[in-house]
Design a binder for these strands. Structure first.
Lengths: 175, 175
DNA sequence: TGAAATGTAAAACGATCGTTTTACATTTCG
DNA sequence: CGAAATGTAAAACGATCGTTTTACATTTCA
């Protein structure tokens, strides 16, 4: 059981830094410190391994989204960028790499984004009320995605700017 | 000369829809309707072809950014999504696919993003003045990136939300 | 004790990768 | 006219792809 988690953690690092398609199995076995036989016993296939990586990523990301205010979302995002770096959303990157050619991964990405959007809507609704939240939560969603994307070349400044913009928008919606 | 442009246009379509790494030369030659010998005569290599694609993409994208107000940026973005679809920023996707493993492409992406950021700053400054623009243009930048990313799974709604958010932020900065 | 489970190391599988080469047809233009 | 330029079609290059297999070592536990 420890072997599988070690594999997924190693695969997440390598896929995140070098991309899914460009990463060969030899690099995965080397990084995970195990033979290819063991890797395939646990993962099944390269695509299934990426599936497992996305599932683990979703678990970890959603745990950070367990907050009770919009501002806290951006604090959490700033922490994420600080500890894990900024290479863009792994889900959208995976979708972008494979397009619709690997439906299993495309479905996982879309399911994650639906859950993510739902969670953001809940947080916004709790802060400004159901009726105001309708249009506002989509704006907050865009700010989170934008901070994630822009942080690739702007670093923490992008997250800070998104945080400030969100505060302005929330403040405007309150009155 | 027409051959080269036909090649680049075909390569842009294929790379955009199926990714850079996952696309083989056979798919490129088929889509461009030419032999691999001719392709290599004009492009040099797969990486150089992607370089040319990014240069063409930048030319076309920057032409759309030739507007004189922040709101017009989002109108242009909405048009782009309508005519070309939403598969995310090709520059960031390319960077995400290859990481730092192909410095030529990474450099092209960073150079484009610097120019893009500069252009956005100019547009914002023209609208609210130099001193107010400092912090605000980074927020607008985040909104554009966010609309581009979120449009992958939210479609035109993401652009509309970003446009509304930008209007609110600009309005707040004016007074 | 001994069989089942779990691991490693390494060779091999056919397929496909990006690229070059060989052989030949057509067009361009001094 | 005739050579240079530009194209196609297709085979071949060595390398690497994702995956399976063979052979063997170690641990687990009824």
């Amino acid at each position: 059981m420890d072997t599988k988690h070690k594999l997924i953690a190693a695969a997440e690092r390598v896929f995140d830094r070098h991309g899914f398609t460009a990463t060969g199995m030899d690099r995965l076995t080397a990084e995970a410190g195990m033979s290819s036989r063991t890797l395939y016993k646990h993962a099944g296939s390269k695509t299934a391994l990426m599936q497992a990586v996305l599932a683990e990523r979703e678990r970890r990301f959603m745990a950070r989204l367990d907050v009770s205010g919009v501002d806290a979302i951006f604090v959490a995002l700033a922490e994420w960028v600080h500890t894990e770096g900024a290479r863009g959303c792994l889900f959208l990157r995976t979708l972008g790499e494979t397009g619709a050619d690997l439906p299993v991964l495309a479905d996982a990405v879309m399911a994650h984004k639906a859950a993510f959007r739902e969670r953001v809507a809940e947080i916004v609704a709790a802060e400004v009320g159901e009726e105001t939240a309708a249009g506002l939560s989509e704006q907050i969603l865009v700010l989170i995605e934008g901070a994630t994307a822009a942080a690739v070349y702007r670093g923490p400044d992008a997250v800070a700017a998104a945080r400030a913009a969100a505060a302005t928008l929330i403040d405007g919606a309150r009155r």
